[in-house]
Amino acid sequence: MEKAKKNMTILEIFGWVLTLFVIFPVYIMIINSFKDRKEIFTSELSLPKALNFTYYVQAIQKMDFLTALGNSLFITVTSVVFIIVLSSMAAWVLERNKTTISNIIFYTLVATMLIPFQSVMIPLVQYLSKWQIPGTNFSLIDTRYGLIFMNIGFGIGMSTFLFHGFIKNVPLEMEEAATIDGCNKFQLFWRIVFPNLKPIIVTVAILNVISLWNDYLLPSLVLRSPNLRTIPLSTFFFFGEFTIEWNLALAGLVLTIIPVIIFYLFSQKYIIKGVMAGAIK
């Protein structure tokens, strides 16, 4: 036992040594967010002369950070919730009913992950901007629900693929027992299957949050009104025609990734709790 503990400490130290490779570029990002332009381009690597938060304050003001944060949160959270619910349902029926048609659907979902987004974006906007209901304001372009709709469409392929791979970990006997107890399919899924997918739900959530939170291209095509801007869109101020206001852009990015890291830390606790809960049963 003593030896195992010692081994663990060595492993832990090894892990921290590894993080140096990962952190070093992040370190460059953070220290330069405190420097003015001249300092950035004369001494990129050294610690900032003074720890001034001017660029953070400026970035927050220019980006209209709170509005953007609100939009980003709303769009990301709603999209991810829908993606999880819809794709876990889809994955479950696709995995439990192995027929030709379910195979075709599954492999189509998977295959479309290979489409480069750049090659569908113009037809996408062309097609979806035709979705209008006469007499109403309904439009998928320049609305948050429109962007959410598209996010779901692009997220479903990978998420279904992920769920599909993990659903067989849910013991079939549990499902059968529940069916005998008189559960209908809907109850069966929500009461038995879904709760057992916790670790993979969290994983799907993280992977989708990463890509949606930082997404620039799709929102830039869909959202036009300034008050709808997400965080990545609102950083455009710093990316000029010829150059970039690096300190502001870096400060903006640091601000952008903090919520995701907090989310990640919380979600990890949840993964482990989920597994332990399962183990106790």
Binding site: F74, N137, D142, T143, R144, Y145, G146, S225
Partner: peptide
């Protein structure tokens, strides 16, 4: 989602 986007738009 729908209502707030409509307001802002």
């Amino acid at each position: 989602g729908c209502s707030s986007s409509n307001n802002s738009k």
